[in-house]
């Protein structure tokens, strides 16, 4: 049986999280179909058809799917489900919104936020805010799964194009409607949503020196964070704190500057994909978790980093 993946997109561009979900799905089976549901989303379907491993793209183009309202999306997906053994979506706010509805309509469980495919019916997922990993076997005929993007590589592009099939059925529940949206337009991304974060610790010396981090952040489109030590020392406000008592983050790249790496801080960022540590103390515990460590004076190397990016 085939696997249905639901694409995340904005009617113009296929979102990267879809590619990670495709990689996860490819570990469950070979026959991968991708559903693009939206309005005037043909461009997305074109992009989708060129992803390696995708055998077929389904496009459902209707006003009912313009904002991917959960009430409508869930009916569409449920309608298609009987042909599939797995239904997979990225664990984004969109996927998290409609997928459990799909599961309930199919009278099956949803396995949320998987980080590992053990077999076609067994998956690992973090529980207790990542303090434990549960391995769960699904007993349902159809497995409804959301995928944590950072745990899987992105699927590659292919030279071939998969065929695109048009779904004509329109499911409009007419119980909910889109009113408005407000795209975050801050110069820097939110800490919890950022793909790159650069954080400073007590080694920054004072609050003014955080401008050194901001220059790097501007180059990388990164958010700026801080350790509790830096917050407690009064360098920066509390809402910048990453750690046990602050924000829990898991970006693709986390750069820790002048942070010793107390466990309280690690608890908030250890799930980052790549960790870089810059610290002049080569014994700092942060180096024990860093993929790349640079033992150096941050005041010397931060300006260099800004220049060379």
């Amino acid at each position: 049986m085939a696997i249905l993946i639901i694409a995340e997109h904005d009617n113009n561009i296929l979102k990267a999280a879809t590619l990670n979900a495709i990689t996860a799905a490819s570990q469950m089976g070979d026959e991968l179909h991708l559903l693009v549901a939206g309005l005037d989303c043909n461009l997305v379907a074109q992009q989708a058809s060129k992803i390696a491993g995708i055998k077929k793209v389904l496009i459902a183009d209707s006003e009912a799917y313009q904002y991917q309202l959960a009430e409508n999306m869930s009916k569409l997906v449920t309608d298609l489900a009987s042909n599939y053994c797995h239904i997979v979506s990225p664990a984004t706010t969109t996927g998290k919104n409609f997928m459990p509805r799909v599961a309930a309509l199919l009278d099956v469980a949803q396995i949320s936020d998987i980080v590992k495919v053990v077999s076609e019916n067994t998956f690992s997922r973090p529980i207790y805010a990542g303090n434990a990993i549960a391995t769960v076997e699904s007993l349902d005929a159809i497995k409804v799964i959301t995928v944590r993007g950072t745990a899987f590589d992105a699927a590659k592009q292919s030279d071939l194009s998969a065929p695109i099939e048009i779904i004509t059925a329109v499911h409009d529940a007419q119980i909910s409607e889109f009113v408005s949206e407000e795209v975050a337009v801050s110069e820097r991304p939110e800490l919890t949503a950022a793909k790159v974060i650069i954080s400073g610790g007590r080694g920054m010396g004072n609050g003014e020196n955080f401008t050194l981090l901001e220059s790097v952040a501007d180059k990388l489109g990164a958010a700026v964070g801080a350790s509790r030590a830096a917050v407690d020392a009064g360098f920066v406000p509390n809402d910048m704190q990453v750690g046990q008592t602050g924000k829990i983050v898991a970006p693709d790249l986390y750069i820790a500057v002048g942070i010793s790496g107390a466990i309280q801080h690690l608890a908030g960022m250890k799930d980052s994909k790549i960790i870089v540590a810059i610290n002049k103390d080569e014994d700092a515990p942060i180096f024990q978790v860093a993929d790349y460590g640079l033992v150096a004076d941050l005041f010397e190397v931060l300006p260099q980093l800004t220049d060379k990016l």
């Binding site: 046990q244 107390a262 466990i263 309280q264 608890a267 515990p285």
Partner: peptide, 8 residues
Amino acid sequence: FDKLSSVF
């Protein structure tokens, strides 16, 4: 162990 990982 160090103090902070103990306090944790």
